[in-house]
Amino acid sequence: MKKSPKSSNFVGKIPTIAPCPILLARQDGKVIYVNASGDLRKIDPVAGVFVWTWNGGRIRALALSKYHDLLFVVHSVEDNQVAVFDVNTQEIVHELVFDQPLRDIAVSEDGRRVYGLGFGVVYELDVGTNMVVKSYGVGGVPNGIALKPSAAELYIGKDQAVQVLNINDGTLRSYGVGGSVKRIAFSGDGRYAFCAIDGRLVEGVGGLARLDTTTGNIDAVKFGQRPTFVALTSDSSTVFVSDERSNKIYEVDAGSLQVRREFDSLLEPAGLAVAPDTGFVYSGSGLYGGVLVLDPNSASANR
């Protein structure tokens, strides 16, 4: 693969005191939520300050409802509880409990269902009643889960494959992508699923796979060592991928899958989000107490 040019255009660091391996941004890019050693922190990225903190004991995953009125937080020592916050009042409106630890969660577009990813199983829980209404066996040890926009399909990252679970009839289909899938992000229309590929199982080389959710066709590009998180710009033309081993963030053309640029990041970049209004990219860190702010459109990007 042709070596991509390095760029340096980080415009700031937002201190979080503790490492924040989980990061989530609201769709308008005006609020960031991070996990900082068990504390859930709400950050104003423009001012670079905390505006709210909640101690969850231990936080495993975060998710927002489609209209960003509810925030779902997997917490507790057992990783089996989900606190549901009203994002306007910061009050807990539901406290959900699952039967086993969760590795990740996805939320239905109306916020009434939570899909909890356990060890070899996906639980569908009704938020209003706090009752599991269905469970689906998926086998193995899955890594992450994502709900396809405007569809009744869950995409599950696993070693060597992406599983697709139809939540209407419970059927499963699988697509081999040549590596361990960590996180999945969709294009705005749901046509493509972009999968971060960890290279530990494929000669130490990671990359990005693009799965056409309509035809099942897969295209891929190799780069980095352990790509983990993936995020798209609002127009779905550009994909950003963080690599926790090489400590870089890669900018990839969503159409050609060409790596345009690579950016040095904080140690073990974790969590990734793109603000639609400014185009800024936010990345947490598994070792450093801060959130990195990257402006890909900066005139000083290339050096």
Rank of each mutant, 00 (worst) to 15 (best):
S135D: 15
D295F: 07
N55M: 11
V93S: 14
P15F: 12
S108M: 14
G170C: 10
A299T: 06
V138Y: 06
L125W: 00
N302Q: 14
F280N: 04
F50I: 05
G289V: 05
V221Q: 08
T238Q: 02
S76G: 01
D235Q: 10
Y250Q: 09
E251Y: 00
D169Y: 02
V241H: 06
L211R: 07
S236M: 09
S236Q: 01
N143Y: 12
V122Y: 09
A193I: 06
G188A: 12
D86A: 09
Q90R: 14
N166T: 10
F119H: 14
D44R: 01
F263V: 03
V293G: 01
G279I: 07
S135C: 03
S37C: 01
P15Q: 10
I14T: 03
T215F: 11
K3R: 08
C20S: 15
P142L: 14
F85L: 08
V51G: 05
D110P: 02
P149E: 04
P5G: 04
S256L: 12
T233D: 13
E109C: 01
G29W: 03
L154H: 10
H75G: 04
Y155V: 11
D243N: 08
V11K: 15
A25K: 09
A196R: 02
R60L: 11
K182N: 10
Y33L: 12
H75P: 01
L102K: 10
V34A: 05
I249M: 04
V221C: 09
V293D: 00
G286C: 06
D295L: 06
L96Q: 08
E153V: 15
N247L: 02
A106E: 01
K3F: 14
V132F: 11
I156S: 03
S285D: 14
R245A: 13
L266K: 05
F223C: 05
Q160K: 14
P101G: 13
R210P: 11
K42S: 11
A185H: 01
E95D: 13
N143P: 03
S174M: 08
Y136Q: 03
V281M: 15
P19V: 07
L117R: 07
G199E: 05
N143M: 15
G279D: 09
A18P: 00
A270L: 11
V93C: 14
Y192W: 15
Y67C: 00
V141P: 00
L294C: 02
G179V: 00
S300G: 13
G190I: 05
A18T: 13
G57E: 10
S187W: 08
D264H: 08
D39A: 02
N217H: 11
V133P: 07
A301H: 08
V241E: 09
F186Q: 03
T171P: 00
T233P: 03
A196S: 06
I197E: 01
Q163N: 12
F10P: 00
V133M: 03
G204H: 04
R200I: 12
D104P: 06
H94I: 05
V77I: 14
F50N: 02
G289F: 01
S65F: 05
F280E: 01
V127S: 06
I249D: 00
S37N: 15
A25I: 08
V252I: 14
T215V: 05
D212T: 08
A301Q: 11
T228R: 13
F72Y: 11
R41S: 06
T278W: 03
V87E: 09
R260I: 01
S4G: 06
V138C: 08
V141G: 03
